[in-house]
Design a protein around this nucleic acid. Structure first.
Lengths: 118, 118
DNA sequence: GTCAAACTACGATTACCTTCGTACAATCGA
DNA sequence: TCGATTGTACGAAGGTAATCGTAGTTTGAC
């Protein structure tokens, strides 16, 4: 009988994901940057935390990834010393159709505007 | 020469509205309830703060309306003793197409689900 | 076994957010 | 003018959040 994996991570089930929580998770610039980054990846693949260049320290980075995971926005899985992160696209699209796409498209528009205006 | 209206209210210009601020404003259940209510109204008309039944006190209500105004989500205008509130649909749609509709539709889905599951 | 890499845990700090109560201000109608 | 209606200002309490530094754990590679 195999023992449970030592380093499991708590994720909310699909039905436990709350809109307010998702919106709050996305309302932080650093977290929005993370989500923007993950959005471009294949969901199955994911990326380690270290793949993104954030302006905060490592422990703050850990904090933001956890907020995203606990809100149900991302899925985190250990692979060796790394922790692979991927968006929970399927769950979010099933719960709140179009939300993720619309927010990220709005974010893209704002980024473009910010670039243009310096 | 007419003097400026005594009771003017500060609103962010369209270009000053930030996605993070909007998402944060929408991430509170009480404020989401306000926005849900205003969504059903004609933008030109609006409704006074007292038109909505919130479970918080008057001063807390004032606070939430101000957060929404300062984030650029609603427009507030004095009319007599009342303050009329309306969504800034046009501005939000121009800045972040589909965002408001998608969030409110997600909210409607969640409300329905909550009702079903008690 | 050792070491480096990737990430976590914990405590501290600083700041913000939600909520309230009380007292006040502006407007309208009688 | 007086009172009722609407909403504001202010201060305070209590909770939550973002950030950091330091010290640790887990894993894979040599």
């Amino acid at each position: 009988m195999p023992t449970a994996p030592v380093r499991a991570l708590e994720h909310p089930a699909r039905g436990e994901i709350r809109l307010e929580g998702v919106l709050h998770a996305l309302s932080d610039p650093t977290r929005l940057q993370i989500v923007r980054f993950l959005w471009r990846l294949d969901e199955a693949e994911g990326a380690p935390c270290s793949a993104i260049d954030l302006v905060v320290t490592k422990s703050t980075t850990t904090h933001h990834f956890r907020v995203l995971r606990e809100a149900g926005v991302i899925n985190q899985v250990y692979r060796g010393t790394a922790k692979m992160n991927a968006l929970r696209r399927r769950d979010l699209d099933a719960l709140f159709p179009g939300l993720l796409d619309t927010v990220l498209s709005a974010d893209a528009i704002q980024c473009e505007r910010d670039d243009r205006e310096g």
